[in-house]
Computed example of a mutant assay.
Amino acid sequence: MTHHYRAPSFGFTLVELLVVTATVGIMGSLLLPAVHQARETDRRLQCANNLKQIATALHNYHDAHDAFPYGFRFGTTQDRDCWFQRLLPYVGEEQLYEKYEAANPDYVWKAPAEVRQKPLPLFMCAADPAQPAQGGADTTEAFQGSYVGLHGNDFLGHQSSGIFYLDSSTSLTDIRDGAAHTLLMSEVIARGSDVVEGAWGAGGSYWGGAAGGGAYGFSAKESPNTSVSDALPMCKSNSWPNAPCENTVGGASPTGGPTELYARSYHPGGANAVLADGSVQFIGNSTDRVIFQAMGTIAGGETDRP
């Protein structure tokens, strides 16, 4: 009698296949949040590292000039020049700075396109989906970063109780409330990468939005990611996620309106900021408003600082 050998079957039955598929699906659903969390942690750390390097550059500038750079200035040349241009040689951008100085435009937004439009990763938060962003000043495009300096804890204007404002020359000795308790810089949201002519605030750029406030400073009047709208003479967008904004007129800001720009980010739960001593902190959205306001002055004499 002839016997036929039948090789064993190693295929999946339908039931087994369904079980494996369901198991893979469950594992994927469990791992996906962990992957997202790991990515956000990386973006948050990268953002904090950016701020740390910028703070180091600001302190190096301070060592050389006995003060931090001015918030912004007016002038017959390089009008609306702000801390960003002054800091370029201290962040490894000597050639960009030299091109800007050689061009010596009457307004900073008239600097050559190769200068004003160059994106600098150090000044961009990877969590902001709009980056690398361009902002509007007059009818030109210009690089728009994610970080601005402390103006104070009230409306943005020519003068301030903070560090960066018109013709400011703030030194560490001026920070009588203590450098370890006073904000130096924070992140803001770019409100999209499209250029909007005449946009102010975080929708402006480092190249000409200074007088409107957002290119050089933020207010600590409200805690990070507040639901209170930024108030700007012209918003780049009033519907961008995480960044409510309303156009405003009247008041006493340099543009004729009560300008307000608050710390904002896409990091869940808060925003990165750097203190005047160079240390980086993640400031939670639930931070007490009064304490945050106290961190927004250099000589307020408050005793309830963290």
Rank of each mutant, 00 (worst) to 15 (best):
M1P: 10
R6P: 00
R6L: 14
A7T: 09
P8C: 01
T13P: 02
L14D: 13
L14T: 14
V15R: 12
L18F: 08
G25R: 02
G28T: 11
A34S: 09
A38L: 09
R39Y: 08
E40V: 06
T41S: 15
T41D: 15
R43P: 00
R44T: 11
Q46R: 13
L51V: 01
A67E: 13
F68K: 08
P69M: 00
P69K: 01
R73H: 09
F74C: 05
T76S: 15
Q78S: 10
D81L: 13
C82V: 05
L87S: 06
E94K: 12
Y97H: 13
Y97V: 02
K99E: 12
Y100I: 00
A103I: 00
Y107N: 11
Y107P: 03
V108C: 05
K110S: 10
V115Y: 01
R116H: 00
Q117H: 00
L122W: 01
M124T: 08
A127R: 03
A133D: 07
Q134P: 04
G136I: 01
D138F: 11
T139S: 14
G145P: 07
V148A: 12
V148F: 03
G152L: 06
N153V: 03
N153L: 04
F155E: 14
G157L: 01
G157W: 01
H158K: 12
Q159A: 13
S161I: 14
G162C: 12
I163N: 09
L166G: 01
L166V: 02
L166D: 10
T173R: 14
D174T: 11
R176F: 08
E187L: 08
I189F: 02
R191W: 10
D194A: 15
V196S: 06
V196F: 04
G198M: 05
W200S: 10
A202P: 12
G203C: 05
Y206S: 06
Y206R: 00
A211H: 07
G212T: 02
G213E: 07
G217T: 04
A220I: 05
K221M: 15
S223P: 14
V228I: 11
D230F: 09
A231Y: 09
P233T: 05
P233E: 04
P233W: 06
M234F: 14
K236V: 06
N238H: 10
S239M: 07
P241E: 08
P241T: 03
A243K: 09
A243E: 09
A243R: 07
T248C: 08
V249H: 09
S253N: 14
T255S: 12
G256I: 02
G256M: 02
G257K: 03
T259V: 10
L261V: 08
R264M: 06
R264C: 06
G270W: 01
V274L: 00
V274W: 01
L275N: 03
A276C: 07
V280I: 05
F282Y: 08
I283Q: 06
N285V: 11
D288W: 05
D288G: 11
F292A: 04
G300V: 05
R305C: 06
